[in-house]
Amino acid sequence: MSDFSILGGPPSKRDDESTVENGTARDDRETDADRRLDPPPGDATTALHRARLYSLLALGLERPGGDGGLETCDITALVDAAAAIDGTVEDAATTVSDHLTDTTGLADRWASLFGVEEGHTVSPYELTYLPGPLLTNVRQLADIRGFYDAFGLEVGEEMPYRGDHICYLTEFLGHLCLREAHLRRAGDDEGVAVVVDARRTFVEDHLGRWFWRFAGDVSAHDDGVYAALADLLAALVEDEIATLDLDPEWVPDTLEVTEWNEGIFGETGRGCGGCGADASGLDGLDGDPQRGGVPTTDDLPRGPRPDRPNGS
């Protein structure tokens, strides 16, 4: 018989407790001191520049027409901010600046690209780009909201978008950069490490996985300010990935029907993926394409109607 009991805390922690009692140290365990992060490289000014650019993207990718939109931005300052980060980012910011000289028809263009009124030509939502059924991807939505919660932020009640909308993601990254700038100026190294670590994780787990798909889709459907904004987003995030030495797991380059339901549900598998609805039962209900594919009673299979019982 050994002294081990199945009753107790995690065995890995029991070892730690016993080393404390014995006054000995185990050299293969990370201590709190080891975990304390050195302040990541960077400076307050660059952080502020990033914050401005992310804020520009958040404003630019939101539906135009509200107060405080793109037209309120100091474009010259933004181009200067981009120049301080990277030449590619500067070029992209300059192109955005060029397109902002005439913003007529911007709302219609946004609606055509991202609005629900015509269906999304390009989805501004992260979950759309992730592989696998929506049923399991909702966890990513919870993860995103967890980031907002952790920094005391929440989506305003008047805001109409789901938490994984591109304008929220960029606004959140801008907020983190702004905090970093303040913390650096205050000399709070631990605080800087926390916010930079959060940004690192957020970019790697979320925006860094799919920004390139979003940017590519926007460029394929637009050649104006939104293509320029998408290019700026791509340049900025690529710079983030290089600077923070990230390795995001990229989403597939096409909207894929996931492995488990491929061949069973076909494209309908992109639904929730949980109920196992069988699209084959809809054969014959495809409807007339001239009517937009909406089935009517004319499309229903014909057959004898069962007699009803008396009195019912």
Binding site: S2, F4, I6, L7, G8, G9, P10, P11
Partner: peptide, 8 residues
């Protein structure tokens, strides 16, 4: 490897 335990 005694990795499984009951919480007290």
């Amino acid at each position: 490897v005694q990795a499984i335990y009951k919480r007290p």
